[in-house]
Structure formats: structure tokens, C-alpha cells
Design a protein around this nucleic acid. Structure first.
Lengths: 207, 207
DNA sequence: GATAATACCAAGCAATCGCTTGGTTTGTAA
DNA sequence: TTACAAACCAAGCGATTGCTTGGTATTATC
């Protein structure tokens, strides 16, 4: 299944808003603005202007500004869970699965959903306590995907460090790429970057 | 030289504010509040209340609120450069130097300067363009410390991945520990954590 | 003990914030 | 055409924001 097909099926299940609809367009612009200026510095007037409506009209779609932030995060995680699962299916060995996960997460962070992923990392504190609980549940779900693969590698002694620690280090390392990785002006492709990560972990690149 | 001695000499050189003085206390409280609530959500009234003065009186010490953020960042980097250099001096081999850097950065992030380090990572976008330039100059200086050590290891073929990529991945991975590492309720010490990082990079722990 | 700088207070201003309100347009289905 | 809901506008309210102002303690210096 292609990335687009996955997105379409999530839209059909009403788990993610259609980017072509009013709500989806708003969430997309919100992700962009939150990433660029931060949640607090982005005003409801900014958001409204970005989609060409009046600021008051926003509250017809969302009750509060924070609900917009939560929606960006929730829908992003839902999409990513689906993308990760799909990436895993094509891989067979644990090592290949790990590479698939690394590659998929790098693509999430630096590809089309990159802005929303950055929001997920940097705007966490702007979420209310209630919203955090909701988002955390989703996040735990796809953390389990990682721990499963890393645990298997550890059992096989092909990974020497603790899987929990490795996953958390990888979370930080891969998220951080959003602050420096610029594929357009630099020879490193996403695949090349994924290879580097694998090499770093002691899994030499497969030719 | 102990951590405290390093701090004292920086204070003497007027590169870092004395935490006992008015300015230093304010910066310390600012770091704490910025870390806890974020820069934008922290009001000048919050800052003033934290040190027991009126909000207007803040502007006797700093011209703008942003200047406080910049000061937190600049002084933190200055202190960290000194700490890293001191950590390196006690190490002899490149591997030991790398471990010293990892250990020192973990301590910066999770120790006494942790709050300020987190601010450095998460509040970057709240800095004005001018302030960013200033802070970036300082940051490049201590990035060079890392690249020097990683480059040597690479030449010795003891590190297989690209030093630039490794340093950036480590920046993300180590910074991220601030979001999950809790030494008080978990068996992992800072030394243990540093060991795990080294193992992950292919440098087994020395007994 | 006079002088001057430093550190602070009390009060409030202008701007901006998230959000509300009452009413109008647009789209959909019978 | 009628009926009705969803989508939007125009206007603005109350609260909060960073920062200013004019004046008063406090401290150091000679």
C-alpha cells in the first residue's frame, strides 16, 4: 500500500481529516504555523487568515485554540501508526524491520507530515493535562512497535544496549533531524541518512 | 578543577552571573519557569514574583523579556563550554574523550544546568534573529570540541559513520534524555546512561 | 553625613489575546 | 420553492500582555 492509499483509508474511516476539506486544510495550515512560530505565538487571527476566514469563524470548527493543537497531534500519530505498520509488513528480518522503522520515522519527520511531527515534539507543553493523556495513549501504541523489534534484536545479541534506552535515544536523534537535515542542499538522501543510523547502531549497510 | 571552581572562575571573569546576586537569581528562576511553562506562557509578572519584586522592576535589570531568555542561553553555553573543556582534559585516549563529552553533556542536561539546557533546546524559536546569531556563534565553538574527537575516531576506523551525522544524532539523543531520564526513580545512573550510549556507538564499557 | 548611583515600588497605558454574539450567506434535500 | 442546517462575517468584550513613568528606599563612596 502506498502512502497515499494509507492516508485515503484513514480518511474513509474518519480517523484523519481530508486535507482538501475545510477542517483538513485548517489543520494543515495550523501545523505549518505552529512549527514556524510556535503554538503560543500563533494567534487565532493568524490561523484564520491562513485559510481565508475571519478569526471568529474558527470557533465554528473547534471549540478552543488548544483543540486545534490536539487535533494536529492526534491525527498525526494516527497516520504514523498506520505508516509504521505498513513499513514493517514489507520487511522480513528483525534488522530489516528496524531499518524500515528508522526509514519510516525519518520520512514522517522530514517528509509531508514533518511540520506536524515537529509540533508533536516542540509544543507538548502547550497541551492541557487532559489532552496529554489522550495523546499519550496513542503514542504508547506505536512505541510498542519499536520495542518489539528492538527486543528481538537484543535477544539475538545483535543489539547490546538496552532496548528501552535505545528507543528513547533514537526518538531524540531522529526527531532532532528536523532541525538540521535539509535534503535539498546536501548530498544525503533519506535512505543515506537511514543507513548512517543503522551503521551507528552496528548494523552495516546492505548493498 | 571541580564544577564549582569552574563556575567561580567564570563569575570572576564576568562571563556568568553569580547565582547569589540579583541578576543571577533572576536568571535561575527564569530558566526554571521557561522550562516548566515555556517562554511565551511565562509572564514578566511570573518572573518578578519568583524573585519577589514588582514586574516593572524587572526592566531595571533587563531591557526586554527576550533579553532575559538570551541571557539564560548565553550564560548556559558559556558554562558548558568550560565544563566540556575541563572534562576533556582528564581523558587521554579519543575513546575516553568521547565518553567524557557524553558524560559531561548528560550531566549538563540532567544536572544543575538542566533547566537552562532544556530552554536552549525548546525555546529557540522565541529568540529574535539578532539573538540567534549571537547564540549560534557560541554554540559552534563547542560543537567543534565534539567534531574534533569524533573525527579522530573516524580516522582510526573505530567510528564508521560520518562524524557530522553522529554528532547531530547525539545532540538529539542526549537532549531528549531531559524528557524521560529520571535518576531518582530508576536504576540507571548518569554513568550507566553514558555507558549505554557508548555501547550503542560500538564502544563496549570499560570495567 | 552629604552625594550619587543603584534597586525597587505603585500605578497604569496601549496593544493584543482568545473567544462570544447576533445576524447573514451558502449548500442540500424534499 | 421551501425548509433547515452548516459555514461564515462584522463587531467587539473582558482579560492579559510587555513595558513605561515618576517617584521612593537602599547602598556605597568620599
Amino acid at each position: 500500500m502506498s502512502q497515499n492509499q494509507i492516508l485515503q483509508s484513514l480518511i474513509a474511516e474518519n480517523l484523519v481529516s481530508d486535507p482538501q476539506g475545510a477542517r483538513g486544510r485548517l489543520l494543515k495550515e495550523a501545523a505549518r504555523l505552529f512549527r514556524e512560530k510556535g503554538y503560543e505565538r500563533t494567534t487565532v487571527r493568524d490561523l484564520a487568515a491562513a485559510v481565508g476566514i475571519q478569526s471568529g469563524s474558527l470557533f465554528h470548527h473547534f471549540h478552543t485554540k488548544e483543540e486545534i493543537l490536539k487535533a494536529v497531534m492526534v491525527e498525526t500519530i494516527r497516520l504514523n501508526i498506520a505508516l509504521m505498520q505498513a513499513a514493517m509488513e514489507t520487511a522480513e528480518t528483525p534488522k530489516d524491520k528496524l531499518r524500515a522503522l528508522v526509514r519510516a520515522e525519518l520520512e514522517s519527520i522530514n517528509g509531508q507530515t514533518g511540520e506536524a511531527m515537529a509540533v508533536l515534539v516542540f509544543e507538548w507543553r502547550s497541551l492541557s493535562a487532559d489532552s496529554r493523556v489522550e495523546v499519550l495513549k496513542l503514542r504508547d501504541f506505536y512505541e510498542a512497535l519499536w520495542l518489539d523489534v528492538l527486543g528481538t534484536l537484543r535477544e539475538q545479541k545483535r543489539l547490546l544496549a538496552d532496548p528501552f534506552v535505545v528507543r528513547r535515544m533514537l526518538t531524540g536523534a531522529l526527531s532532532w533531524t528536523v532541525t538540521w537535515y535539509r535534503p535539498e542542499r546536501g548530498g544525503l538522501t533519506l535512505d543515506g541518512l537511514a543507513d548512517q543510523v543503522m551503521v551507528m547502531l552496528g548494523f552495516p549497510a546492505t548493498p
